[in-house]
Design a binder for these strands. Structure first.
Lengths: 126, 126, 126, 126
DNA sequence: GTGGTCTAGACCACA
DNA sequence: GTGGTCTAGACCACA
């Protein structure tokens, strides 16, 4: 289930990528599972197929899904969990940025890590 | 001292906002201190004045700086450190996003919080 | 024996063509040998008959196989090994493309030719 | 100078990627050089800007070029020459395929390597 | 001016 | 049916 926030400044295709990864992480989608076709998902969430295609291509580039020509798209077999250096560096940059923001708002190290723990656990539940 | 990374995908004006806030946080800039004029900063860091102006407007919106007509721009008197709810919610959204990314890469809760602690401390030093 | 890689971005019908030619090259299949019917091969490798048919048409166009109405399909008598100019030109284009890619990755002429030799020999063994 | 072969079955955006890499390799384009804007190149070669944008994004993903928001696109500073494993594996697969093709056409190992050497050198000249 | 995203469609190869 | 490419535009944030 993909839910879009059209008001968000995060591009739609990125929202799809992120949520799809979330569903894989949660086990809602397992290796080998078929995911909706580009056209079907586009209809479901009322956007143009090109945008879904862009999201799927990005997911494929990240080895999260695999495309079988003419047949459809599937969750990849052995999902690459190795923290690929480039992605790791990007995540760290974003993390630094958020932490700075929180620090500026006056949060202590403990408050920040507590928040992180809470968010981490929250993701396991919903 | 503002240091830009022109290649970053973070907009330049956001980089200025972030670094200015960082200097306030670190005490390099104190309430009442004058900060360079739009034109001067633009010259210093070799970018177009419009971009600096945009950064200053954002800092003013966040009550970090104050402009006094005909006199210049200054660090605001009583800087708002209370975690204003909107900014807090935005930070949380970003945090959720980064944590998801790290979780997908296979990091455990401990690994994530360790990374957060490290980054938090790292920021106090530089 | 045809082994498919469904995840490959190489079309299935091309994989069949390539492997069939490989078996002829290796002598596993000799002029006059019968090859499985479209339906049988399709069943064997669990794909739709249309795809096998497309592969067979391509092999026939290249004079690698011959269909005798009512009898079946066979390896052609005098297999054309002369480097037909069109095919040669296509191979050269692809070769140029791969070499460029390797060159961009920093491989020297010697490294590329060594790789080619290795791959050439590797193919003679399996 | 980008020259398209619209009749080719190679996608236009891939042709752009390949030729841009070629120009970098040849030294026609050096680190820091500006490359034409998406719109300008699109006009020059008479295609739609979206296709140029797709090519540029792919080049950026490969760290060949760098985008500075609102300013333009430039050849990357330290171009990544390390044979990234994934790209290497893909090149090898293609190479295997071409060599098989040539072998089926009756070329000996020496003939293939001679051809490779010739093509490698040819690329240094034009 | 720049690149990034998205639309609403077309056409294609492939299965 | 499937995904991939491309068109011809629109609108946006940014510099």
């Amino acid at each position: 289930m993909i839910v879009l926030d059209l008001k968000s400044n995060k591009p739609i295709y990125e929202q799809i990528v992120e949520q799809m990864k979330f569903h894989v992480l949660k086990g809602h989608l397992k290796p080998g599972d078929a995911i909706p076709s580009v056209r079907k998902l586009a209809l479901d969430i009322a956007i143009t197929p090109g945008t879904v295609a862009k999201a799927y291509q990005e997911l494929e580039r990240q080895h999260i899904i695999e495309t079988i020509r003419g047949k459809g798209t599937f969750i990849a077999g052995n999902i690459e969990l190795k923290p690929d250096d480039t992605r790791m560096e990007e995540s760290k940059k974003m993390m630094r940025s958020v932490i700075l923001e929180l620090k500026v708002m006056g949060l202590s190290e403990t408050e920040v890590t507590d928040m992180v723990k809470e968010l981490y656990k929250e993701m396991s539940v919903c």
